[in-house]
Design a protein around this nucleic acid. Sequence first.
DNA 1: ACGTCAATCCCCGAATGTGGGGAGGTGGCA
DNA 2: TGCCACCTCCCCACATTCGGGGATTGACGT
Lengths: 211, 211
Amino acid sequence: MRILLYEDNPAIRDALSVLLSGIPGLELVGAFPNPLQWERQLASLRPDLILMDIEMPGLDGIDATRAIHAALPDVNVVILTVFDEEDKIFRALCAGAVGYVLKNTTPDRLIAAIEDAHAGGAPLSPSIARKAVRFFQQLPPLKTTRPDYTLTAREHETLRYLVEGLSYKMIADRMNISYETVRTYMKHIYEKLHVVSMTEAVAKALREGLV
Amino acid sequence: MRILLYEDNPAIRDALSVLLSGIPGLELVGAFPNPLQWERQLASLRPDLILMDIEMPGLDGIDATRAIHAALPDVNVVILTVFDEEDKIFRALCAGAVGYVLKNTTPDRLIAAIEDAHAGGAPLSPSIARKAVRFFQQLPPLKTTRPDYTLTAREHETLRYLVEGLSYKMIADRMNISYETVRTYMKHIYEKLHVVSMTEAVAKALREGLV
DNA sequence: ACGTCAATCCCCGAATGTGGGGAGGTGGCA
DNA sequence: TGCCACCTCCCCACATTCGGGGATTGACGT
């Protein structure tokens, strides 16, 4: 398996070069401080897999991943970085990275990640995987049968206005009912949703797609 | 670590029971052919982690996962199944499963998955992980231009607690600051987000992913 | 005919949030 | 050194929400 490495820190680059070169079955075909020349390098070095840092001078690893994935979809790009921020993780995965490994990973786990990626897996460090999974859980309900709180039509309507940011008064006005009726509906909503404040109700409604 | 197993196939259930019982540090506190009695079983057996099959007579493992996750969010549910269809994977993860492991996994990898889940990771079999990652890549161009409201660190923290449904008092308590300071932050948040109430702030924060 | 339940309205008192100010301390940066 | 952004706290006055009640109407089902 031919591996290409993009990493701007010379110490880390050298350490990884030594590590990877010592593994039978792997061949490090190049190691560069940035992916500015990726087009030429990929054409001549023909890697099967790329280890990509994120913050590099000249060209961002995520942008490079996007470009590479668009041009050569068969090349597996694995992000290797210190950042475990959701923002970077999602941008990287959306850009086409097949894996996302943190730099504090032990050498043998890194090797396993490389083999995993080559075998059609998606190596993710545990904390990364958990964040990715949490993303699904926060996803608006696609076709999942969401819990049924048996809100009545008017209660449901009230909740929708609440999520829009309206006050009880405004909702009463919008629904052509009295302020007190809105209060009654809200009490029911609180009971049914097991919440005790507007903010909780709004959060629950939005998170569970009740609106 | 206390483990609970739901699996309808007696042979597999017994095999897993034997396997898990032989691991130091793990304690199999129960093994049932279906999760119909999950409420009572979880209350009495207090598992840290649940291994859940998908197709079981009486109650579907994914539905059970959703119910359990809603009632006891701290209990980690790991799906253990033969199905690697995208549909089931996504429904399971959206329902609150922290992991998804295929039954053709080797025993030591299964043990590793259990430990991984307990350590805050998200054990996914390689082919599952790849499908999950591909999901991100098919996602519509993610909001890279997320508006920047330049909330300060403390304001941002305040907003997060607000979305959790806490009152000013509770937030003050949680952040170890006075009620008045929370009020100050809220005023700033309202200005920066151009909103005038808690509900609007919560809705905007959730909709635009500010939390 | 009776019970149930959604929909509508009402009161009170207590708790909480909103808008307008002011003000001291810190640390970074020009 | 002085400015500025941030974090922290305070006061007043007013608006709004919350948690208990209670009440009437009409529709629907048995």
